[in-house]
Write a protein that binds this DNA or RNA. Structure first.
Lengths: 187, 187
DNA sequence: TCGATACTAGACAGACCTGTCTGGTAGCGT
DNA sequence: ACGCTACCAGACAGGTCTGTCTAGTATCGA
């Protein structure tokens, strides 16, 4: 994958689409709006993306790549601190002005069919998150890392939803306390 | 509110819309589809609902009323058992065949504007859930019922998302264990 | 110099969207 | 008998949707 040589027009489309999709939702943003905002001809758009759905899939995988890169840069030690830093970052991000919830969950909500490529891309991202949690927990010495990772995924999903729909300060406090209760005490 | 006398056509529209909206999303279902499936004339539809958005709002409040009625009927005692019964019910429901996530979260994902009437209806439902949790926790003797309720809301949101996107059996186990870790131990 | 690729502008098709409007029927309370 | 309300069928307007197509320009490697 990603064997293409770089294309400014394609990048502009993807960046613009990402901004609009996240802020307004997939179905609410038409191709015409995207190409107008990106300053790109329609033929160019359909040259790079066979269909709008393919653009959506590219949007999802691009967001996933961006998040992986961000986590990659967070090099706190030990693992327990890294885990808390990740949650702290999500809280900080969720409290920001333009926050509109989780791009993956919002997108999945607009794609009911679980077998749709877009949904598969979302599922892949979720698998990455869960495995990231599990690895950090295992490195931290949690003997039930698998189970705790599943719980942290629950917590993460609740977090991204809560920051979108509820009072950020309240959610922040709840997340902090929830982590205390969920993470096993150190020996 | 709800001072109208009953109307079969209106009920049929609301029931049909609810089914289609939940299964396919709001923006993916047009008014024409709804009235055709409900067997209702277009004029009748717009007689009962001033606009599609008003129908969506009615859909949200109807779902909320249905959930409240269901919880009302669950009369397990003591409060701790009732709380667990509610979560058990959500797990059972989430494992069912037609499950497509939480109607409120899916709807909110398609309405970015927090001030939109539809979003306000969603927010009201969430307030009810949180207060329900808080009251049950307080009755159960949790001194930090407010905070625990916030955490349970996080858990609930994670649950409804997880059952839609991940493996139900795994989520079920994670929810069970999470409750054990989150709920304060009995004296 | 040739040919492929990336891009531009914009018309067009065909479907679907919400919402309005016409015109007519049936029942019900007064 | 009258008027109100609920309902039916379906045409219509004006817009938006995705996707295709025509036609032409610019760049770059072989």
């Amino acid at each position: 994958m990603e064997g293409r040589r770089p294309s400014p027009a394609r990048d502009r489309v993807l960046e613009t689409a990402g901004r609009l999709f996240y802020a307004e939702g997939i179905h609410s943003v038409g191709v015409d709006r995207i190409i107008a905002a990106a300053g790109v001809a329609k033929a160019t758009f359909y040259h790079h993306f066979p269909s709008k759905d393919e653009l959506v899939r590219a949007y999802v995988t691009a967001q996933s790549a961006a998040q992986r890169a961000m986590v990659e840069e967070m090099r706190a030690e030990p693992s327990r601190d890294r885990l808390r830093a990740i949650f702290a970052f999500m809280c900080e991000f969720g409290s920001g002005p333009g926050y509109r919830g989780c791009a993956f969950l919002n997108t999945a909500a607009e794609y009911p069919d679980p077998a749709h490529p877009v949904r598969l891309a979302v599922a892949e991202h979720r698998r990455w998150i869960r495995d990231l949690f599990r690895d950090l927990l295992a490195a931290d010495g949690d003997p039930g890392a698998e189970r705790t990772a599943d719980i942290l995924l629950l917590l993460r999903d609740g977090l991204v939803v809560g920051f979108d729909l509820d009072d950020p300060a309240t959610v922040r406090g709840a997340v902090h306390e929830a982590l205390d209760r969920v993470l096993v005490r150190k020996a």
